[in-house]
Design a protein around this nucleic acid. Structure first.
Lengths: 223, 223
DNA sequence: GCGAATTAGTCACCTTTTGTGACTAAAGTC
DNA sequence: GACTTTAGTCACAAAAGGTGACTAATTCGC
């Protein structure tokens, strides 16, 4: 099932598989067989007739035995940076995987994002772009909800958001915005997690559409 | 200078060149030489050692004699849709060009976005993605300002925003947000455009950085 | 058993942002 | 001079967002 690197393949599909591992984000890496001691993103030379996204999903299935709960293309990366596959360009995807159900198959290991081994320049650029892609999609798609089990506490949800956004959020603001969006509904279960007061469990149950009703923003970062 | 279509090329760089033509957005198309009566996006089979973005800029220079004022990669498009170049995948770029200075070379024509000729399915998908890319970048980069001459009236600027966003904006809100962002400064010139009161001319002169200071948003379009 | 510590959940207050109609100003048209 | 047209500004209300402080329910140490 493991495809061999085809040195003549003009492009590869590289996938950044991201999970919330405890208190940190982690991505899946594999030891590059073609290169000495280097770690690399899972990748694949897509077969003809195969959709790019389908190729990305197959990479994930091969590495984890499961498909991601959300996938998005990051873009094409060429720019004369070396790549393990020696392909000219990489079409990069990002995929999110709940950590509970995702157990890497042989040869794949989770690495915390804050402490990655050396990667090829191109793949490092891909990982950085993956972070930006996740963050910019976070308010447009319910990707954080699917990183959690089907029921979860609001504190857990907030922790996932803080992890993905890379910043702390105020509890009251977070819950107020969540309520206004009609995205979750409470179950009648509670979970006592050791110390403090037990938390009510919620499930993702979106109820109403948001009106995309806003004017312009001028949020330029560099003038 | 016109590169010939290489049938063995594994991928092509396709460019959506967008301009504000009077009251409408327009994109540049060329008559596909390999296909009977079809129009197509300008494209190029990139040379080895050439950056993807450099290839896109060269496409623009070849078609317009000028490089775009803003360029961004849209992504890679494969998905078994036919393409004039018969390449397996297209790396798509979007580029913005001021209409005043951009005169197409032979074989290239501006088409209003609302009335495009039939394109290949893949290129139609690329054009739609280009629109989304522009709209999502509009509040993060000063691309609207560079579509205009160096001095412009605030009404002209608002019209460009309305064109790119595809929706009307309220005059007072637009100007209030613009002032808060410290992006323009008035000149001491005025322009009388026929009918009503003359408008003051402004120039793009960004002064201060915005704080990326905001909580979460739950703006999902489909639950 | 009891107070301290810890986590969950909510409220109230205030500031900022945003939508919007109405207003004044300066030009042309008739 | 009255009317039309475009520019530019104001002020009010509503909505969104930041924040500290409060109550509630549990465990831990003693």
């Amino acid at each position: 099932m493991r495809e061999r690197p085809s040195r003549t393949s003009p492009y590869s599909v590289d996938v950044v598989l991201v999970t919330a591992m405890g208190n940190e984000l982690a991505i899946l890496l594999t030891r590059g067989s073609t290169e000495r001691e280097r770690w690399a993103l899972p990748w694949r030379a897509p077969q003809t007739g195969e959709t790019l996204e389908a190729a990305a999903i197959r990479v994930a299935e091969h590495a984890l035995g499961e498909s991601p709960i959300w996938t998005e293309q990051i873009g094409a990366f060429g720019d004369a940076k070396r790549h393990p596959s020696e392909s000219e360009i990489s079409i990069a995807f990002v995929g999110l995987v709940p950590h509970e159900t995702a157990s890497p198959t042989a040869g794949y290991t989770w690495f915390p994002m804050r402490d990655l081994p050396p990667l090829s320049p191109r793949q490092r650029a891909i990982v950085e772009a993956a972070t930006r892609t996740i963050q910019s999609r976070l308010d447009q798609a319910p990707i954080a909800f699917r990183l959690l089990p089907s029921t979860f506490t609001l504190s857990e949800l907030q922790q996932v958001y803080e992890l993905l956004l890379g910043k702390r959020l105020h509890k009251a603001s977070f819950r107020r915005a969540l309520q206004a969006a009609w995205l979750v509904e409470p179950t009648d279960e509670w979970r006592s997690e050791g110390r403090g007061r037990p938390a009510q469990l919620y499930r993702y149950a979106p109820k109403k559409r948001r009106r995309p009703h806003r004017g312009v923003r001028f949020d330029f970062l560099f003038p």
